[in-house]
């Protein structure tokens, strides 16, 4: 699923410009604990989180995570947007809670089993 499609599906605003709109996202990880994200190993992945700090972007960079969705109406900070633009990571923000946003994406085909 492509990032613009994901945004439409979970009614998210895309907060960055520098990302690959044609890239296919196969898998996702939902967590507020970056330590748990670090134990997750899939490529072309999406992270859904309620945590808002620069370490989220840094963790995404280390894990090759291509897009981050901030849930429950959280918005990324300006410093986070700058970091993400530089690294080509898409940042999205939705009003939906973590469970609902994750469930919607799961039922629409992102099963977390991508390679």
């Amino acid at each position: 699923m492509k990032i613009p499609e994901i945004a439409e599906l979970i009614k998210a605003e895309i907060c960055t410009n520098n990302y690959d709109a044609n890239m296919d996202i196969f898998s996702a990880c939902s967590a507020d604990l970056m330590s748990d994200v670090m134990a997750f190993s899939k490529s072309n992945a999406l992270l859904l989180t309620g945590l808002v700090n620069p370490q989220v972007i840094r963790t995404a960079e280390m894990m090759d995570i291509k897009a981050v969705v901030f849930v429950r109406g959280k918005k990324p900070l300006e410093t986070m947007i700058e970091m993400a633009e530089e690294k080509g990571i898409a940042l999205l923000a939705t009003e939906w809670p973590l469970f609902i946003a994750s469930g919607k994406l799961y039922s629409s085909g992102i099963h977390g089993s991508g390679e």
Binding site: S35, M38, Q55
Partner: peptide
């Protein structure tokens, strides 16, 4: 530290 998203006790094993 946990509020920052770290400190889950997974670091060394990871």
């Amino acid at each position: 530290i946990r509020e920052m998203g770290f400190g889950a006790g997974m670091g060394l094993s990871n």
